[in-house]
Structure formats: structure tokens, C-alpha cells
Design a protein around this nucleic acid. Structure first.
Lengths: 186, 186
DNA sequence: TTCCTTTTTTGACATTTGTCAAATAGTTTG
DNA sequence: CAAACTATTTGACAAATGTCAAAAAAGGAA
């Protein structure tokens, strides 16, 4: 239910849109450590996290790098793969037992046409995600590893408990040894 | 005219939308090195570059850091300021003589309401910009300074001639001394 | 051209972060 | 509980990049 209430905090959802959403979305469950999407496949779905925690990761020189986390009430997908319709270099994994709302991209396209008011929804969500990404870029580009870590603690305190050191390190763009040392420093 | 043709490459623009766009946009010109927007002001406008080159920059520890470039057929604004309606930490400057299309955010909001098909336009543009930003983040996060520079040469060759060393260095997240050394290396 | 200003390069050195290897701590499972 | 994993920490050192200062080069203006 949190999917609908999240959407209706952005635009008002008519009854007919609500039932359409009900038809095209599917609730899916994943267990802890289960793979949601593997590398190389096209990502055809948009996910919304109702419960649990996802991470996106990929490989860089044989090393697994966590690229994002998506927790409750956040969307997750490989946007690049979705929009460009190309294979995704990115995998998605459940870090906890998850309840996700799955929305196939093709259904989303139809939804945009059938319910044009959802375009607004799409735009507003994209704007918000863009701003978040911009903040993250500035953070990585101009802050030291220590500053980034402290920023992470402030902005995503709950993730500290729910993820591993190596995952956070990748997300912050540093090695886990460096992160371990930053932690020890205090 | 390139503004309209750029938009119509994304969605079809009806006559009435075209004349509405004509009413709400204004062509503005800036000279080389002229300031388009200063730091601390709210950014109320979206710009489209018809001719010339803009850069966005801000100050980090007293140092001026170029954050983005916008060349012909690209949009430019401080999205954060625009969407959050807060003062922008970012300034915009013309690096060359520029012809811009200026669209006030309030007019854009009305446009979204009056011509709902423009929501689609907004969404698609946001998606494309998001993907670009994502690529840039990955680049900065996991590539060496040298790799980033070579990437820049490949992806934005024309900007090499049109910008200064210091501006490129800031954009790549390195100091200009380092960039100078990378150049010398070859 | 010549002076003046700005941009770029170079040098010497400091700092940050990465790499690889090993030790320790923590968790899970039989 | 013990064995077997897995995650985290630590050490020694290397590599990348930053800092500050000065020199050289390039670009404009008188």
C-alpha cells in the first residue's frame, strides 16, 4: 500500500488510475542476498521498495562496487538500461528480505499514454532523483573520504546498520581499508 | 529557431503550443565573460543555449570550481535552485558570446498545466540529463585523473578549444597543476 | 612592439588514498 | 562448541594527487 500512498503524495491518483496501477504492478518478494537482476540482462522493470533494502552494484577491474542503495519508499532500477533499452552493466541484489512493487517498463510507457497525468509524476520523480545525484557528485568530487563518510552517517544513518563496510566504501568511492581507518580514527 | 526544432525532435509541437512557447520565452544575449546568474540568487529561469557556451561554477574553500558546461542545444540552469526554490550556490557565466532562450520557471509550471503533453517533454529531458550525470559520477568515482581527461577529450572534443585548463580541471575534479602534468606526459 | 596581465607549466614536497598481505574479529553451520 | 567462512582491521609500502611557490608562455592593450 505504501506505493500508492507515496505516489499520491506527488499527484492525486484517480480511482481509475489506481485500478490500472493495480493491474500493471506486481508485488514480488526477495530473500536476503537474493539476486533481483543480473549483470548483462536488460533491465525491463522499475521497482519500488515497499519493505527491505536493495543495492545496485557492478564490477570495476574485477572488484564489486556498490553504486546505490534503495530503501523503503524509494525507486530502484538501472535507469540507463531502462531508458536506453540496452543491457545493464549493473546488478541488483536484495540486502534484506524485500517486498517490491514491480512495474514493467512497457506498462509504464502505456501508462504514460493512457494516463497523461502520470507524465507529471515521472517528471517530478526524475527531478528529485537528479538533484540527489547532483549532490552526491559534488560530494564525491570535492570532499575528502572522511567528509564523505561523515556525510553518509548524517544523511543515511539507518544504512550504517543495514549494510557492510565494503558496500559503503564502494558507494563513497573509496576502498574498504581506507574506510576502516577512517572509522578507527575517532 | 533551434530551440523549437530541438523540442520537436522529442515530441511533436502543435501550432498552439508553438505560439505559447513563443510568448513565454525570450531570447537573451550575453557577451563573453558576462555573468548570467550570480551566486546566492534564486535561479528562476531555465536556459537553452542556441549559440555560445555557458559554464556553471561555485566556490569551494575560496576556489572557483567549474561544475558544468552547456553548449549549443543544451539546457542550463541550477536545477536545485529551480526545483527547490532556494538560493543557488552556483553561478552561471557566458564563456563566449551567447544567444540563450530564457524560460521563467513559473511560465514553465503554467505550461505543464496548460499543455500536459509538455510533461512528457520535461520527463524525457530529465531522464536524459540523469543518465549523463550518472555516467559522469561513475567516471569521477572510479577512473583516474588521466582516464577522466582522455574521456573528456573523446566526449567533448570541442570544449577543449573553448575552455581553459582550470575550468576543465574543476569539471574533472582535479587541480589544474595535475591536469597540466597529464597533458605534458604525452 | 613593449608592457602588463592572465594562463600554463614546472619543481619540490606533503598528504591522501590505494595495494597487498596478514592478523583479528565476527558469524554461521554442522 | 568447534570448524569454516566471511568481514573487518592493521601494517608496510607505493602511487596518485594536492599544495605552494616560482618560472615560462601566451594573450591583450597602449
Amino acid at each position: 500500500m505504501s506505493f500508492l500512498s507515496h505516489l499520491s503524495s506527488i499527484i492525486s491518483i484517480s480511482k481509475s488510475l489506481e485500478s490500472e496501477l493495480d493491474i500493471i504492478t506486481k508485488q514480488v518478494n526477495f530473500q536476503k542476498n537474493q539476486s533481483v537482476k543480473e549483470i548483462g540482462n536488460r533491465c525491463n522493470d522499475l521497482y519500488f521498495v515497499e519493505k527491505g533494502l536493495l543495492r545496485g552494484y557492478y564490477f570495476d577491474n574485477g572488484k564489486e562496487i556498490t553504486n546505490w542503495f534503495a530503501q523503503e519508499n524509494e525507486f530502484a532500477t538501472s535507469l540507463y538500461s531502462l531508458v536506453a533499452m540496452k543491457p545493464s552493466p549493473e546488478a541488483i541484489e536484495a540486502l534484506e528480505e524485500c517486498t517490491l512493487i514491480q512495474l514493467p517498463y512497457s506498462s509504464l510507457q502505456n501508462l504514460y499514454i493512457k494516463f497523461p497525468e502520470t507524465e507529471r509524476l515521472g517528471r517530478i520523480i526524475m527531478e528529485a532523483y537528479y538533484i540527489k545525484l547532483e549532490e552526491r557528485l559534488l560530494n564525491i568530487q570535492f570532499k575528502t573520504a572522511k567528509e564523505r563518510y561523515h556525510n553518509f552517517i548524517l544523511s543515511k544513518p539507518t544504512l550504517l546498520q543495514r549494510t557492510s563496510l565494503g558496500q559503503i566504501a564502494g558507494y563513497l568511492g573509496i576502498t574498504q581499508e581506507t574506510l576502516s581507518r577512517i572509522r578507527a580514527e575517532v
